[in-house]
Amino acid sequence: MKSYVRRIGTLVSIVGILFFVGCAKKPVEQVKEVSPPKQEVAPVQEVKPVQPVEVPKVEKKPEVKVPSLADQIKEFESVDIHFDFDRFNLKPEARKILAEKASFLKAHPGLKVRIEGNCDERGTREYNLALGERRAKAAMDYLVFLGINPERISTISYGEERPLDPRHCEEAWSKNRRDHFVIIGE
């Protein structure tokens, strides 16, 4: 079973490589050029059910659609980072997201970002204003650490005043304990 899965995996990666190589009018030959270990290549060809992945059809229109800047900004702004209750430390997932945000900001040096720190409704309003600020600052500090000029970053805390999900349950609270990122132009 395991080897079957591995075989499918190999096929998929080969197909993926083909796609990036971006030509492959003779896909089978291309596979050979990648020169995977023989004993693994052969079985691939036998895995018939996976064959319907029609690589050649994809190849016919090789243009890679580059999203417009507006779409990229939309995408950038759609990803928040999240925190634990009454905490502002950056979790591994948040650091990963911030690294992506840093790459985007490096690629677009003309853009500035506003980090909006938010809290869930638990805790008190006054304290949450301060907590939201610390959440925003934590993200800002990390972006600066990753090489973004602090002049390009501003922070604002909304405390618990702008919940994304107004419900009163952990699912909503975990969504609301977040830093939201807004591109504010140059």
């Binding site: 006054e126 204003l129 301060a130 600020e133 600052k137 501003s154 922070t155 805390s157």
Partner: peptide
Amino acid sequence: SFPGLNTT
């Protein structure tokens, strides 16, 4: 009206 918090 400093940058950041001006609260409570």
